[in-house]
Amino acid sequence: MKKVLILAEHKKGSLKKASLELTGASKGMEVSAIVFGSDAKAAADDLAAKGVQNVFWVKDAKFDHYHPEAYAAAMDQVVSQVKPNIILGNASSLGKDLIAKMAARLDAPLAADCTEATIQPDIKLRRPFFSGKAVGTIEFEPAELVCITVRPNSLAPGEVSSTAGKVNELAVNFDFASSAVQFVGKTEGSSDKPDLTEAAIIVSGGRSMKTKENFKILNELADVLGAAVGASRAAVDEGLASHDMQVGQTGKTVNPKLYIANGISGAIQHLAGMRTSKVIVAINKDAAAPLFQKADYGIVGDLFVIVPLLTKEFKKLLGKA
């Protein structure tokens, strides 16, 4: 039976949903997990409760923040102890970095950022290429150990088994003082919103927003979706939004999976910046707005009515109500 090592992540102690997608994928297998941070006890316990047989909790407060060398040293210790066949992580800031590093250290094949992943009985993976313009089916070359990162929200969360495992505190031999890398600090984002160019979801407003204050309803929707807020050139020109929010030819080029355009007519200057979005939603009073020709979904209606309703519906869906 193949053995799995999961790189688990938590936010202020509570296990991330994305990590549960990894336990779900490993159902019934021999699974270990590693989790970092002095505040990760609840997450470690949760992993054990989800049937992970061996949870390695790196409790040392020095590991509260990511340090590539130190985290790799910890992974090393666990790998040599459990000898996994699969190292599984999320395609998150941490997972993408640390698992790549481990793949090199162990000279193992790596399939990063998979959007479809089955690991048993056989490994079946698909991952996007060319910014999602093509999807490839991955077949590993024969190897003792493979590394996989999976994009969050790609798999169904679940547990490994109903039999709870145990939590082991892991002491890691790593000399922070002599490392060439020193963690200095962490900034809370200037906003809690992702950067426009990197955001997976963008909620965007045009001239029809009418006032700066009206962008509040877009911000509320964006908050629910974890989205960034963008604007058309017209909205920026009218002073409704700042220039760094501008999407289009002379603003930012974005490539999100979902782009919700509110009151944006869809002139070419705007299309130039967002036409590669995977799914485009157009909301506009004017049924003749050209953006409807480019959108996947459209609502002809008053955005000031529709947007708050959307916020309410998404809250319901995402359990944030």
């Binding site: 094949p109 290429f129 313009k133 991955i138 959108a295 979904y297 459209g298 609502i299 529709i306």
Partner: peptide
Amino acid sequence: AGYKVKGWSLPPERGKVKLIEGEPEKQA
């Protein structure tokens, strides 16, 4: 090499827009 790509697929081309009708609540 760690893997090979065994076959490609392309996402479906953007089709015609799906306009959602009805009352605002229903539309949302």
